[in-house]
Design a protein around this nucleic acid. Structure first.
Lengths: 102, 102
DNA sequence: TTATAATATTAGATTTTTCTAATATCAAGT
DNA sequence: ACTTGATATTAGAAAAATCTAATATTATAA
């Protein structure tokens, strides 16, 4: 019974992990392919510290991962769930001209 | 360009709208079929005021709607997007024993 | 028309999130 | 060993979310 509460907590943590305008923009940018932190900063207009903190949160929730190449870290979406959700959201908010059924 | 920002805002608002443990439990309960507010309170253990406020937020985001029957309001999930997302989350957090790919 | 059951709204305190500024780390290149 | 470029972490202030308690609304039944 409080198994359900635990699951709700976990799901909530994950959803809140991606549910900020800035983190969504980061994910959107990464949806095009892996991006360095600097590229992500430019694409989203975020300050360095802010970008880094948002990426940390996305990492914590397992939504993204990175690979190092020299001094540069390349981030990308690493979870199927996140890809699926981003696809649904994109379809709903970015393609559906009249926002019925939101 | 700030079209993207506007969309990110809208998506964020929607996601935050469903991303609280209590609201997820409410949605989970409604996934079984429409429920009265009292039934939802019992199912989730929420206080009356709290349940009502959470339902208001879900309404605002268009995730749920209700129908009145006498004094009782019956709530249900009204958006395809919300149903799809709930299905993905259920699959990921409630069926996948080993939480790979979160 | 008044009492009551079912639900909504408001107010205020508490907690959580998010930003900026400052500082730290870490891996090259010199 | 130093310096520098790329990124991370910490601290603290400001903004947003959430709970409880109190009050209001609304539809029915007496």
């Amino acid at each position: 019974m409080n198994d359900m509460n635990d699951k709700a907590e976990a799901v909530s943590k994950y959803l809140k992990g991606i549910a900020s305008p800035h983190r969504l923009l980061l994910l959107c940018s990464m949806a095009e392919g892996e991006k360095s932190v600097t590229e992500l900063m430019e694409a989203t207009g975020l300050a360095q510290s802010s970008a880094s903190q948002h990426l940390a949160k996305l990492r914590e929730e397992g939504a993204v991962s990175y690979r190092r190449e020299h001094r540069t870290l390349y981030y990308s979406i690493s979870s199927k769930l996140t890809q699926d959700i981003m696809a649904l959201l994109y379809q709903e908010f970015c393609q559906n001209k009249e926002n019925i059924n939101v």
